[in-house]
């Protein structure tokens, strides 16, 4: 009984880590632009797909991982430079629709280059489960949870300690004041797209051995990341992490105690409840729309 619960807990934490990283990606871009970036899932997919293609081509795993994350970052930069920036002072809704278009475009390109099949990345350190009583944990799950925690710490350092990080935060808090102290806010927007694409790329790479990867994996994980970000309160970094973990755990519990057929329904039922009963999420502050 207890070991079964522990098993669900492990599995929830594993997928929760990925949802948390996806939610952090949404949060970073939302804060600096007010845009919900629906191409966020594509960053995750690109990270996984590129890593798989490179390892299949014989590139050593660590190098493949590094290149895959870098490619995701470049995709983020290109998205900002080629699609968001040319739109200028367009309305936020327009920008959101642009990200949906970009998402479909990226999926199309990957479908042509990578094919339609599902492939997996080899686990980083073998696939021999670690036993806790009768509950077991894959080493790759530890990689996912550990990497997630490390990224959260690195982002906390970036936003709390570095000049550039504080400039990004300042732009999120008050764009006008940021411009008036001499922060190049357009540059900040590019930084936040790259940053969130890098976080997505890492999430894609560490999860690819467990979840498999294909051109369309980004859709579901992106949507779930969005639900996690909304649950935590859009714009809150801590909320994104907590929201991701809660969503992962709820999915695992429903899959375990009810039926795994309903697993994917959890986030969608949840988002309806959130929007009805607590639209600000757990840690959200803003009620007014930014203009």
């Amino acid at each position: 009984m207890l070991s079964q619960a522990l098993q669900f807990f492990f599995s929830g934490l594993t997928s929760g880590a990925i949802y948390a990283l996806a939610a952090i990606g949404f949060t970073i871009i939302y804060n600096s632009s007010g845009v919900i970036n629906f191409a966020q899932g594509e960053f995750i997919m690109v990270g996984g797909v590129v890593a798989v293609m490179l390892t299949d081509a014989g590139v050593p795993l660590p190098l493949a991982i590094a290149i895959a994350v870098a490619v995701a970052g470049i995709v983020g930069l290109l998205l900002e430079k080629l699609a968001i920036e040319p739109a200028g002072n367009a309305e936020v809704v327009t920008l959101i629709i642009i990200t949906i278009g970009a998402s479909i475009f990226i999926q199309g390109v990957v479908q042509v280059v990578f094919g339609k099949g599902q492939r997996a990345l080899p686990p980083f350190t073998g696939d021999k489960p670690i036993l806790f009583g009768s509950a077991s944990l894959l080493p790759q799950s530890l990689w996912m949870i550990g990497t997630g925690a490390l990224i959260v710490l690195m982002l906390a350092w970036f936003f709390g300690r570095t000049r550039l990080g504080k400039a990004v935060l300042a732009t999120a808090h008050n764009r006008l004041a940021a411009q008036l102290v001499g922060i190049n806010t357009r540059h900040v927007l590019a930084v936040s797209f790259v940053l969130s694409a890098l976080v997505g790329g890492v999430a894609g790479v560490v999860s690819a051995p467990i979840t498999l990867t294909s051109y369309d994996t980004g859709i579901m994980v992106g949507l779930k990341g969005f639900v996690a970000a909304t649950l935590g309160g859009l714009g809150s970094g801590a909320g994104a992490v907590v929201g991701g973990l809660i969503l992962g755990l709820m999915e695992a519990l429903v899959a375990g105690y009810v039926s795994s057929a309903y697993k994917d329904a959890v986030p969608f039922v949840l988002i309806i409840l959130i929007l009805f009963f607590m639209p600000r999420g757990l840690f959200g502050e803003r009620v007014t729309e930014r203009v």
């Binding site: 935060l169 808090h173 008050n174 008036l180």
Partner: peptide, 14 residues
């Protein structure tokens, strides 16, 4: 036009 949630010192250094 403060950076409201940030500290006074952060505001100044910005």
């Amino acid at each position: 036009q403060m950076f409201g949630p940030m500290s006074v010192e952060d505001n100044l250094f910005l």
